[in-house]
């Protein structure tokens, strides 16, 4: 299968801060590809470069075979983009927003009408099509934006945080739409998200991106398999005891240990059989274990494995706040 997107050493520097750092990815036609990372990791910057809204500092990117810097107009014809922040005209009706879009892409009347029907059907907004967008709910607006992004039959669709700020039920709905789109309309989809479940549930492949770099890239299942074991998570009352950690380190069946906010995560095969033993060790070491949990690895663990922090920790860390502030200053 041909590649819908070829990215080669793509880099974007804002005033000395590297937002996207030599990213190289190939995305196959028809793939549903996820960029997972905390806020400010460079996901949106990467997408904006692919969508010709930002110029790369260095490196190249091709979308549907067209270079984003040399042939931006051809790229624009092939892509649809659904932005992170709302981008609808609230004083127009849903249908008028779609019509505006279709005419900007030079679609003739017959095609416009037919396509509007189709996309409104797809996002179940047919009965609301003639209402002003200012009267739409958040979920409806999001669906309308998705419909609009599809109006001109894009070959590649970019979704920037498609379910950000939506309630769980609407999120589920949008996930179903995205899946359907990918299958029924045969569109290559690249979505960014900082919701682990979203990447896990939707994507054929996921790239974990942190500080502008790709730190892992594979199918969610394969990524989880790299962890290779169950996770036994011990909640420890005081700070995690160094001696205790050293003690556990002697056991070969503990493949990996990771501390994070008062928890000690242990990678253990057949975790359920090892919990009694772990309790014994803890008791001998005089460590009070407040709770124990056992789970199969998730993308969250993969993230933790590669980035060294949970995605939520990462988002609230101080340096990230600084980065976020700087990002805002440059972007607004």
């Amino acid at each position: 299968m041909a590649d819908a997107i070829e990215i080669n050493g793509l880099t974007k520097v804002f005033d000395g801060l590297v937002a996207v750092d030599h990213v190289s990815i190939n995305i196959a036609e028809g793939e549903l590809f996820g960029l997972l990372g905390p806020n400010g990791a460079g996901k949106t910057t990467l997408i904006k470069m692919l969508a010709t809204l930002l110029m790369p500092t260095s490196g190249t990117a091709k979308v549907s075979g067209y270079d984003v810097t040399k042939d931006p107009d051809k790229v624009r014809r092939c892509i649809g983009i659904i932005f992170q922040d709302p981008s609808l005209d609230n004083r127009l009706t849903g249908k008028e927003n779609l019509d505006f879009h279709a005419r900007m892409y030079g679609m003739d009347r017959e095609l416009r009408e037919k396509r509007m029907d189709e996309v409104l059907d797809l996002v179940e907004l047919k009965d609301k099509a003639n209402i002003l967008v200012e009267n739409y709910s958040g979920g409806m607006k999001r669906r309308l934006e998705i419909a609009r992004g599809l109006m001109h039959h894009p070959e590649v669709l970019f979704l920037d945080e498609p379910t950000l700020g939506l309630d769980p039920q609407t999120r589920r709905h949008i996930w179903e739409y995205i899946r359907n789109l990918n299958k029924k309309e045969d569109i290559t989809i690249i979505l960014t998200t900082h919701y682990i479940e979203e990447a896990d549930y939707l994507c054929d492949r996921v790239a974990i991106i942190d500080y502008g770099k790709i730190v892992a890239l594979d199918a969610p299942k394969n990524l989880k398999d790299t962890i290779g074991a169950d996770i036994v998570s011990l909640e420890i009352s005081d700070s995690v005891d160094k001696d205790f950690v050293a003690m556990l380190g002697k056991f070969k069946w503990i493949k990996k240990m990771k501390e994070h906010d008062g928890f000690l995560d242990l990678s253990v095969k057949n975790g359920e059989t090892r919990i009694p033993e772990l309790m014994n060790i803890a008791q001998k070491a005089g460590v009070v274990v407040q709770s124990v949990s056992l789970r199969k690895p998730t993308l969250e663990d993969v993230f933790l494995h590669y980035v060294g922090k949970t995605i939520r920790e990462e988002e609230t860390s101080v340096k990230d706040q600084v980065r976020e502030r700087m990002r805002r200053r440059w972007h607004n």
Binding site: R76, F83, P86, S87, L88, M104
Partner: peptide, 13 residues
């Protein structure tokens, strides 16, 4: 402010 400018700018016009 309301984001519609992005929609306009990304079209091939």
């Amino acid at each position: 402010e309301f984001g519609f400018l992005k929609e306009i700018m990304v079209t091939p016009v």
